[in-house]
Amino acid sequence: MRGLKKKRRVQIIVVAFVALGLSTGLIGYAMRDGINFFRAPSQIVEAPPPPTETFRIGGLVEAGSLQRGQGETIRFNVTDGGAVVPVAYTGVLPDLFAENQGMIGTGRLIDGVFEATEILAKHDESYMPKEVVDALKEQGVYRHDPGNPPSGS
């Protein structure tokens, strides 16, 4: 009788560990595409990610680089002051998207061109995404307007 209780207890513990391991594996598998790392243009130029990796890029839209071609594809350059990365995006840009303004894009780097699937523009005059502010500060090109509250807060 006593050996049967001990055997049953061990079985329950083993089943619980297997279930825990399986659920952890399933959660990791489900989240594999949901995590997009942020990279500044300088980081992309230094160590280009593989074409299979989806990530976020942020910086300022370079002045004079916005090209609206035939069809819906828009091309422009993103810079953080230290490097420039060309971007291609097919779709409708946000209303607040403009040259010399902050942006963040999600997509992949294919043959040296960031092919964006989503473009986000700054929110208003005083807002710039925290990641973009940090990247610009690192390059020494960030200029804060003292009349506006701190960006990215």
Results as ranks from 00 to 15, higher is better:
residue 103 M to T: 08
residue 1 M to P: 07
residue 151 S to F: 02
residue 140 G to N: 06
residue 92 V to C: 04
residue 113 V to Y: 00
residue 44 I to D: 00
residue 24 T to Q: 15
residue 28 G to D: 05
residue 34 G to V: 10
residue 44 I to T: 11
residue 145 D to P: 01
residue 77 N to Q: 15
residue 140 G to V: 04
residue 132 V to C: 13
residue 23 S to R: 12
residue 118 E to G: 03
residue 69 G to N: 11
residue 93 L to F: 03
residue 14 V to Y: 06
residue 144 H to V: 09
residue 7 K to T: 13
residue 144 H to T: 01
residue 125 E to H: 02
residue 48 P to C: 08
residue 122 K to A: 07
residue 89 Y to W: 08
residue 130 K to C: 13
residue 108 R to H: 11
residue 69 G to H: 12
residue 49 P to E: 04
residue 47 A to N: 15
residue 143 R to K: 13
residue 138 E to F: 14
residue 78 V to T: 02
residue 76 F to G: 01
residue 128 M to I: 04
residue 62 E to N: 03
residue 38 F to E: 00
residue 110 I to Q: 13
residue 4 L to T: 15
residue 114 F to Q: 06
residue 50 P to M: 04
residue 74 I to H: 00
residue 87 V to Y: 04
residue 43 Q to W: 02
residue 40 A to T: 12
residue 27 I to M: 06
residue 90 T to I: 00
residue 24 T to H: 11
residue 51 P to R: 02
residue 37 F to A: 13
residue 131 E to Y: 09
residue 99 E to Q: 08
residue 23 S to T: 15
residue 51 P to Q: 14
residue 109 L to H: 08
residue 21 G to M: 13
residue 116 A to Y: 04
residue 29 Y to L: 13
residue 56 R to T: 08
residue 30 A to H: 02
residue 22 L to D: 14
residue 21 G to W: 09
residue 86 P to T: 01
residue 149 P to N: 09
residue 27 I to D: 07
residue 139 Q to P: 01
residue 45 V to T: 09
residue 65 S to D: 09
residue 91 G to Y: 10
residue 47 A to H: 10
residue 47 A to I: 11
residue 93 L to A: 00
residue 148 N to I: 04
residue 74 I to K: 06
residue 127 Y to T: 01
residue 71 G to E: 05
residue 137 K to E: 07
residue 139 Q to I: 07
residue 126 S to R: 08
residue 135 A to L: 12
residue 11 Q to T: 09
residue 129 P to H: 08
residue 11 Q to I: 10
residue 73 T to K: 14
residue 130 K to Y: 06
residue 105 G to T: 03
residue 101 Q to E: 14
residue 54 T to Q: 07
residue 136 L to D: 00
residue 61 V to Y: 06
residue 108 R to C: 05
residue 37 F to Y: 13
residue 107 G to Y: 02
residue 63 A to S: 14
residue 110 I to N: 05
residue 136 L to H: 10
residue 79 T to F: 10
residue 104 I to L: 00
residue 100 N to H: 11
residue 12 I to Q: 13
residue 76 F to N: 09
residue 76 F to K: 03
residue 26 L to S: 11
residue 121 A to I: 01
residue 138 E to V: 08
residue 41 P to N: 02
residue 144 H to W: 07
residue 40 A to Q: 01
residue 41 P to M: 04
